[in-house]
Amino acid sequence: MENPSLLSFIEYLQIEKNCSRYTIEHYTQDINEFLLFMSEQGIKNLQVVEYFDARLFLTKLYEKNLSKRSVARKTSCLRSFYKFMMREEIVAENPFALVSLPKKDQMLPRFMYEEELNKLFSSLDKDTPLGLRDSAILELLYATGIRVSECCEIKMQDIDFSMGTILIHGKGKKDRYAPLGGFAKDAVQSYIKEAREVLHKARNKTHSYLFVNFRGDPLTPRGVRYILSGLIKRATTDGSLHPHMLRHSFATHLLNNGADIRTVQELLGHSKISSTQIYTHVTKDQLRKVYNASHPRA
């Protein structure tokens, strides 16, 4: 049985905060993890949790070798949860209010070089409905830089082939239009014309989501990541490549070729330009490498 405070918090996230279902899933998982910790520690209810308990929970997280980013996310989630419960007068204090968030490791996003991308695109099998679908997913992600979760939310009516744009439903219910490049446009049209109906009607399913699985149901983010991971493994021996690098590559290649950062921010759907600026560090690093390798007196 779900905790009633958690159910109220989820309702608050859905109605007042307009959070996406993926954000709500993460919040629910993190809070349930804390509820399990409470049970293991013999803590009876949320009202009696103290600062010491919050610190002990963080210690347990570190013992699991979680990244600083994951620990910070879980801490922030529980801080928000208790802040909500204080507003609703469910609890008197927020035990996570004074818990400091761990400083996140400053990791530069890894991107794929053009040679790696060419190998990936050339490895595609376009002779089957699933192959055409996978090709469309790959081309679309690289052409637009959208998140995997955003890719799964695209519906048929969101695509305007005449204008060459797609309506993207981003984080926090923020919609934006993404331009559809020529390669992606051709791949998506081929998939819709030759593959989608085959997959869609195989199980007599009726929905308007663009990408479907072999059962005809809408593809999930987990399904897309599984597909992309398989494509990457078949195309390259580099085990460090992962699906999110398509988004990193999109941003990096645009900046390397002269796009201004505000445009890239808009295309990525970043609410803050600081989120986009990390890609300028990547491009500066790339420029330095090219300079050192090319200049006679570098």
Rank of each mutant, 00 (worst) to 15 (best):
Y62M: 12
S294I: 05
D238N: 14
D105F: 08
L180G: 07
R288C: 14
R133P: 13
S70F: 09
G269S: 05
V148C: 07
S122M: 10
E89C: 07
L246T: 08
A195S: 10
F52V: 15
V198S: 03
K60A: 14
S70Y: 08
G223W: 05
F81D: 04
F161Q: 05
L120W: 10
I24E: 07
S240V: 12
T283L: 02
L231P: 12
N18W: 11
F121W: 01
E150N: 05
E89N: 12
S123K: 02
S122C: 09
L199V: 12
A298P: 15
E266I: 13
L101W: 00
I24G: 04
T252S: 07
S70W: 06
E63Q: 12
Q277W: 03
H242E: 10
A136R: 00
G182H: 04
I137Y: 01
I166N: 01
R297Q: 11
G145I: 09
F37I: 04
P95A: 05
A195I: 03
G239M: 12
M85E: 11
M38A: 05
R55C: 14
V49G: 08
E114T: 12
I278E: 04
S208L: 12
T165W: 03
T283V: 15
Y226K: 08
N292F: 14
I261V: 15
T144W: 05
G145Q: 00
S229D: 15
C19I: 00
F81Y: 10
T263S: 13
P129D: 05
E2R: 06
N3D: 15
N94W: 08
L210D: 03
T128A: 08
S271V: 15
P102N: 02
L13K: 02
K104S: 12
T220E: 02
L268Y: 01
E2Y: 08
D217M: 04
Y191T: 04
Q157N: 11
